[in-house]
Nucleic acid binder design. Structure first.
Length: 697
DNA sequence: TTTCCCAAGCTTTTT
DNA sequence: GCTTGGGAAA
């Protein structure tokens, strides 16, 4: 490789004097960013270049220089990232940063809307809808529109929600979106637009907001009420935004609005790590930042502190295959380290055994479990591995899987709380009513209508005409609600009462597996305990769903912190000494959905880049050579095209060898494994004479 | 009108 | 492998 000399920027802006001195903790570029004075700044931070560290020090530096922490806003993508950063900042300046405001865009907007929603004609309190709630809402309206489709296939609720979301997040017309992704529905463009309008109107009347509303309505509020904008923006002396490459149009406009009074905005991002295009993220936001904020400083962080040179080489090579990219090449002073390994496994089982065995091996070498991660494209890619890890008693957490609040039984319980909070919440009403024996969609609809008219006062059944079939259970529900409405008891007590009421319903509904579901509900109670009031809890459930699988293991934290399993998306911002990327198959990573669309393919490539750059010391990319599919049975797979034809010095092929204990199963010699083994990994056959659960642990 | 049962369909990533 | 939808019985 040719030698590279990095030219430093010509001059550094004057560093404020006074305040904390971090010059021994940060490199010059990081220091420049952390101690940037006033005005807009864009920090382009490659993977592993200490982005979080820099932001944390930035917060501490501002506070140390006398900026009141409550006048600093730190916007991030996940609550996990936000709390992590604020906690770290707090340790720098003994707790003084605790008052820094921030969180996700959605949560931040929610706080604003809570205060001002009535100015938009919204009833308060309103309810935040998660994805499946919004689907339920749209499904109610959909019924009235399907008839017009003249027997043709009309989009399902799921598709409708994606369409509406795309229209709003990208600020494009329905035709545009349909042409791009759903040409077969193009003939319904007008009907769909009308349905969308109806959906927006309905939510407004019923006091419901979906995720997109939180952003779009905040913008609308600012447009409509300039005084509110001034008031809100005046409180934001400094605005810091993390992961700016993943903002959508609405979020970029919000950043501009938030900083419109003081003009101090620092955004941090890496164009190479933009992986949320599917939900409207617009790389253009980071590219146009210098134009949107004239005079913005641009600070580049390219010194990688995380990975070995071999890992970076692979990352750089992979990224070079993207069509749209920027001049940036990570470098490190770390030694070369082992080259990343490409591991073809005969099938899923072998792949899982390989990962499990290597994990144990590294652990014996002194690398703790939680510093190792297995990454994959989508949630179900790890099922087989989860079984294998379970068999070997290797503890793991899984991020990015099912959310606790998505489970039907949890939604049931939450719906009771929602109705108490917002009696207009039709979705929640329908849900809890239909739990009752003898009440289906029709009857539930009638009762809801009756409730909405408010004839009998809140939660009262007086004057309703009810059939004897369900009057008993219905009055039980209503007396529970009335009682809870009256008592100003803590959230925990309310939850207990609801659970007591719900338990019999749960058991009859899920006679098969209710014990497991009861455990989930116990978890829910545990989570709720941390919240002061019902409203805050409900907001959190909608915006920051607790990960079900992550929760399971947190209970047992007394032991060793577990191995991390995660979708690549959820692993963003994290780092591990050892990383396994499994199921690196064509059709999985890149997803078959994206093949044929160049922008989408570039995003898949960046996804792989994100996965690779999570690794500090050791990296393995593996894939099964044969898979099962329900209908076509066994078939040969193809490794990810992104990994094909890479030189062996960059990505070293590894050959799995079954230890000679049973007669060698003839491994199918697929064409792609022809590049011959530079490394061998010995896989002892599963020991049949010894029960699996007896492994020494 | 509800509920139960069977068939079909479909499936990424997340706030 | 698991939810959604349709159709038929109660």
């Amino acid at each position: 490789m040719a030698r590279r000399i990095v030219i430093q920027p010509e001059s550094l802006p004057a560093v404020h004097t006074g305040g904390p001195d971090f010059s021994d903790q940060l490199n010059p570029r990081q220091l420049e960013a952390a101690t940037w004075g006033e005005g807009p700044a864009l920090v382009v931070a490659g993977a592993g270049t200490g982005k979080t560290r820099t932001l944390v020090h930035r917060v501490a530096w501002l506070v140390g220089n006398g900026i009141p922490p409550e006048e600093i806003v730190l916007l991030t993508f996940t609550r996990r990232a936000a709390t992590q950063m604020l906690t770290r900042a707090a340790t720098l300046l003994d707790g003084r940063c605790a008052l820094v405001r921030g969180g996700t865009f959605h949560a931040f907007c929610l706080a604003i809307l809570k205060q001002y929603a009535s100015r938009l004609g919204y009833p308060t309190p309103f309810t935040v809808l998660d994805r499946s709630d919004s689907e339920d809402v749209v499904d109610v309206l959909r019924a009235g529109f399907v008839g017009r489709s003249a027997g043709k296939r009309f989009p399902k609720k799921r598709t409708l929600i994606s369409l509406f979301s795309a229209v709003r997040n990208r600020n494009r017309s329905m035709e545009d979106i349909l042409e791009g992704g759903y040409p077969h529905f193009l003939e319904f463009a007008d009907t769909l637009t009308e349905l969308h309008e109806a959906y927006i109107q309905y939510k407004k009347e019923q006091g419901l907001m979906d995720y997109d509303d939180l952003l779009v309505l905040t913008l609308q509020l600012f447009q409509q009420e300039p005084a509110v904008l001034r008031e809100v923006a005046a409180r934001n002396r400094h605005v810091l935004v993390d992961e700016f490459q993943d903002t959508n149009r609405a979020q970029a406009l919000l950043v501009k609005a938030f900083a419109s009074v003081h003009g101090n905005v620092m955004v941090v991002g890496d164009d190479a790590q933009s992986i949320y295009r599917f939900r409207g993220a617009d790389l253009g936001n980071i590219l146009r930042f210098p134009e949107e904020f004239p005079g913005a400083a641009i600070i580049k962080l390219e010194h990688n502190y995380r990975s070995t040179q071999s890992i970076l080489d692979l990352a750089n090579t992979v990224l070079a295959r993207a069509h749209r990219q920027f001049e940036k090449r990570l470098y490190t002073e770390r030694s070369a380290g082992d080259p990343p390994g490409l591991v073809p496994a005969p099938d899923d089982r072998f792949e899982s055994r390989f990962v499990a065995q290597m994990v144990l091996q590294f652990r014996e070498q002194g690398i703790p479990l939680h510093q190792m991660a297995v990454l994959f494209r989508s949630g179900h890619n790890s099922y087989d591995l989860e079984v294998e890890l379970g068999r070997r008693n290797i503890l793991f957490v899984k991020y990015g899987g099912l959310k606790l609040s998505e489970a039907a039984h949890v939604k049931d319980v939450i719906a009771h709380l929602k109705v108490l909070e917002n009696p207009r919440d039709v979705v929640a009403w329908n849900r809890i009513l239909q739990l009752l024996e003898g009440i289906g969609p029709k009857t539930a609809g009638r009762i809801v209508e009756w409730i909405q008219q408010g004839s009998g006062g809140p939660f009262s059944l007086d004057g309703a005409s009810l059939s004897a079939a369900y009057v008993a259970s219905l009055s039980r529900l209503f007396s529970l609600l009335q009682q809870l409405k009256r008592e100003e008891a803590p959230l925990g007590a309310h939850l207990e009462a609801i659970l007591a009421y719900y338990a019999p319903l749960l058991r009859s509904q899920y006679s098969e597996d209710y014990p497991k579901r009861e455990t989930d509900l116990d978890h829910l109670t545990g989570v709720a305990a941390a919240f002061a009031d019902r409203g805050a809890f409900l907001d959190s459930v909608a915006l920051d769903p607790v990960e079900l699988t992550a929760l399971d293991v947190e209970q047992e934290e007394a032991d060793e912190p577990p191995l991390v399993l995660s979708t690549i998306h959820s692993a963003k911002g994290l780092e591990f000494r050892v990383v396994f990327v499994i199921q690196a198959l064509d059709g999985v990573l890149p997803s078959s959905y994206s093949i044929g669309d160049q922008e989408a393919m570039d995003e898949e490539l960046r996804l792989l880049y994100v996965a690779i750059t999570r690794a500090e010391d050791h990296l393995f990319l593996s894939y099964p050579m044969i898979q099962f599919r329900r209908y076509d049975g066994q078939y040969f797979t193809k490794p990810s095209r992104f990994l094909a034809d890479l030189p062996e010095t960059i990505l070293e092929p590894c050959h799995l060898v079954e230890a000679p204990r049973e007669p060698q199963t003839a491994l199918p010699e697929a064409s792609h494994s022809a590049a011959l083994p530079a490394a061998e990994v010995n896989l002892p056959a599963p020991n049949a004479s010894e029960p699996d659960d007896d492994l020494p642990f």
